[in-house]
Simulated scan of single mutants.
Amino acid sequence: MSLRGHLLVAEPTLDDPNFARTVVYLIEHSEGGALGLVLNRPGEVPVHEAVPSWAPYVDGVGMVFVGGPVSPEGAICLARCRSAGPQESLFEGTPEHEPTALFKPITTTIGAVDLHGDPSDAPGGITALRVFAGYAGWSGGQLELELESGGWYVIEAEDDDVFTDTPERLWRDVLRRQPGSLRSVAYFPRDPRWN
């Protein structure tokens, strides 16, 4: 089953500095691998410096986020649209029936935007935009092994998770809204010795 459009929330004892206390939004997941973006690490470069033509579409936090450790010199952009349309694989070529190659739907309301394109060619109804430098990537089967070992919680994503104005609280906020014992994980101390 594909986890595309879901969140990976780091288990509190995950100590890899690239992923400790992160929330990752999966934009692709198949047998060939997975690709995601860290949602809760705003960087230090303003969007208006990195991609000035797209800056007017950014709502909320106006910084380029650190999307992950892979290809940090590259940028991926997510946009919220009133209706993104049918989901298409980001790993495949542009299908002929897709309305625009500038926007590739991930869910019915969120898609990836080609930052090399002209913003005036973007589909109507874009209500938010977020730019990420780098991404998190897993080869085929790698993410499944990490899930089996308990390194991540898989959680349904909400659009507001992707475009939150308070990324520093996202890890805790996502866990706090979960039912049962998973909610208590939100209060797990950063240093287990404090427990």
Rank of each mutant, 00 (worst) to 15 (best):
S89W: 04
F91Y: 00
E92W: 00
G93Y: 01
T94Y: 08
P95V: 07
E96T: 02
H97E: 10
H97S: 07
E98I: 14
P99I: 04
A101W: 13
L102F: 10
L102A: 15
F103Q: 05
F103C: 12
P105W: 03
I106P: 06
I106G: 06
T107P: 13
T108S: 15
T109S: 12
T109Y: 08
G111S: 03
A112D: 03
V113L: 15
D114P: 15
D114I: 12
H116D: 15
D118Q: 13
D118H: 11
P119D: 11
A122P: 11
G124P: 13
G125D: 14
A128N: 14
A128Y: 06
A128G: 12
R130P: 10
R130G: 14
F132D: 06
G134I: 04
Y135W: 09
A136F: 06
S139D: 14
G141I: 03
G141Y: 02
Q142K: 04
L143T: 10
L143Q: 03
L145P: 00
L147Y: 08
G151R: 12
W152I: 11
A157Q: 01
A157D: 01
D159N: 15
D160R: 11
D161K: 03
D161P: 02
D161R: 01
T164D: 05
T166I: 09
E168W: 05
R169D: 09
R169T: 11
R169Q: 08
L170N: 00
R172V: 00
V174M: 02
V174H: 01
V174K: 00
